[in-house]
Each structure stands twice: as structure tokens, then as C-alpha cells.
């Protein structure tokens, strides 16, 4: 039985797809059989971030509507074994997804995989609710700014009421906080919310903190999930996040502003 994890946020542009791709890659690199599903029907992006956009033939909507088999739609990642991508449709909209259809796809995948990562669209409407409905765990991606924190708070409310686990009265979804685009020097200047404020408002456990990094944009545009860039701060932070997701205790990094010392200036230190 696979663990179904939804990557969600409410607000758009906070790094859901980047995080879903990076975490799925990280899990596969740790030997877990992983599939990452793009639920953003109509605004397909995951395939670009994963660098497989030229290999998309069938998509999630085709599978749900019976126009293709699941195995035809799954794309095997070229860089990591164990990693598969199920792309969204770019030509359809979210109404093409049905609860029964999504359930059937997840039921089939759960037999063959260890982890199913659902990349949720932004918003709190149908697409986002379908992405979270069957989840066992949720990774709530939040930027250190007030609007993002408020939207994450809203999503946490929906996770506690509008999901299968909530409706059946089962154990609640395990909620994890993933803070992205964290810039310690701007936090010190008061431009950004600090880590403790975010944790206090959202009151859920912190899974990871990804520093604002040039490596992320570079990775997106190259179609290589940033986890592969293990020299970079963001790549290392995602690796830490994956380790914590697998139950390991890893100390938090990159949350404090460090002035560059002489050595790191000479030798470059961690690349941003």
C-alpha cells in the first residue's frame, strides 16, 4: 500500500510543483518506488519541471475517461529508477476529473508504489479538493509572507474537514509544513515573516525549510528537479526534507543568516 501525499498550499506560485517534483525525486533517490501526479488540469507544469514534456502522450484525464490505460500514461523518469510521472491534461479543465475516476487511478497505483505524490493546483476549488481528498499525509507549502500563511491556514481547515479521512472519521491526515523561499537576511530585516511566527500561526510540525535560492529557478528552467543539484543549498534542504518524511531526525539548516567567512569566500562554500 502506497502512502498518498498531497502537496498543497492554497496560494499559487509558492513552489508546490517544484516541491512535489523535488520530493518525489528525493524519495526515488532513496530507493522508494514513487509516482508524482499532476492534478493541475489545464495548467500543466509538472512535466516541464520534471523535464519530460516531450514524452507526454496520454494524461490523467485520458486515463480517467478510459481513453488510455494507466501504464500508457505513466512516464518513467530518465534520471532515477523508481520514479514515474502522471501528467495532467493541458487542453481540458478541472471538471474533467471525477472523484470516482481519481479513486480508481489511486487504487491501482497504490498496489505498485511506495509513495504517491499529488501535486495540487492552487486555490480551494474542485481541483485542489480532489487532489487532497484521498491523501494520507499533506505537505503544506508556505512562503514567509502573510497572504501565503493565511491561505495555508485555510487549506489546513479543509484538510481537516473535506477529505476522505475526515468524512469517514478515520485518523486525521498528517499535516506537514514546508516553508519555501526563506531568506534569512530578509527575515532579519523584517521584510519576511520569521520561521517561529509561521509555526506559531499554523501550529503544525515543520517538515522542511527551503532557502530562497538561484538553484531553484535554474532547476525549473532546465527541467531537472533541484534535488539532483546536491551542491546547492535548496537541493540539500530538499534532501533533508525527504529524510524527515522518511522518519529520520535531521537538524534544521539554512534558517539563520550567516555572514560569509573567509574560508567560504575563498572556496565558495555551499552554492546558492
Amino acid at each position: 500500500m502506497a502512502k498518498i501525499i498531497v502537496v498543497t498550499s492554497g496560494k499559487g506560485g509558492v513552489g508546490k510543483t517544484t516541491s512535489a517534483a523535488a520530493i518525489a525525486t528525493g524519495l526515488a533517490l532513496r530507493g522508494k518506488k514513487t509516482v508524482v501526479i499532476d492534478f493541475d488540469v489545464g495548467l500543466r507544469n509538472l512535466d516541464l519541471i520534471m523535464g519530460c514534456e516531450r514524452r507526454v502522450v496520454y494524461d490523467l484525464v485520458n486515463v480517467i475517461q478510459g481513453e488510455a490505460g494507466l501504464n500508457q500514461a505513466l512516464i518513467r523518469d530518465k534520471r532515477v529508477d523508481n520514479l514515474h510521472i502522471l501528467p495532467a491534461s493541458q487542453t481540458r479543465d478541472k471538471d474533467a476529473l471525477t472523484l470516482e475516476g481519481v479513486e480508481k487511478v489511486l487504487d491501482t497505483l497504490t498496489k505498485d508504489f511506495d509513495f504517491i505524490i499529488c501535486d495540487s493546483p492552487a486555490g480551494i476549488e474542485r481541483g485542489a479538493q480532489l487532489a487532497m481528498y484521498f491523501a494520507d499525509e499533506a505537505i503544506v507549502v508556505t512562503n514567509p509572507e502573510v497572504s501565503s500563511v493565511r491561505d495555508s491556514d485555510r487549506i489546513l481547515g479543509l484538510l481537516a474537514s473535506k477529505t476522505r479521512r475526515a468524512e469517514r472519521g478515520e485518523d486525521p491526515i498528517q499535516e506537514h509544513l514546508l516553508i519555501t523561499r526563506y531568506n534569512p537576511s530578509r527575515v532579519d530585516l523584517g521584510d519576511m515573516l520569521n520561521l517561529e511566527d509561521i509555526r506559531e500561526i499554523l501550529a503544525i510540525d515543520l517538515l522542511g525549510l527551503i532557502p530562497e535560492s538561484e538553484a531553484v529557478l535554474r532547476a525549473s528552467n532546465q527541467g531537472v528537479p533541484v534535488t539532483h543539484d546536491d551542491d546547492s543549498d535548496a537541493g540539500q534542504a530538499y534532501a533533508d526534507t525527504v529524510a524527515r518524511l522518511l522518519g529520520e531526525e535531521v537538524p534544521l539548516r539554512f534558517h539563520e543568516y550567516q555572514k560569509k567567512g573567509l574560508l567560504s569566500r575563498m572556496f565558495g562554500g555551499v552554492r546558492r
Partner: peptide, 22 residues
């Protein structure tokens, strides 16, 4: 959480936790 509404239509309401913005 934001977007949630908790009501005690007949008496006092005690919230053991925070009431977030929204």
C-alpha cells in the same frame, strides 16, 4: 483556521487553541 466558523448558539464558547485570521 481561516475560513472556519465555530458557533455556540446557546451558551459560552471555549476555544482551547488559537483563532486565526479569517
Amino acid at each position: 483556521r481561516s475560513g472556519q466558523q465555530v458557533t455556540a448558539p446557546e451558551g459560552d464558547l471555549v476555544v482551547v487553541g488559537a483563532v486565526n485570521a479569517g
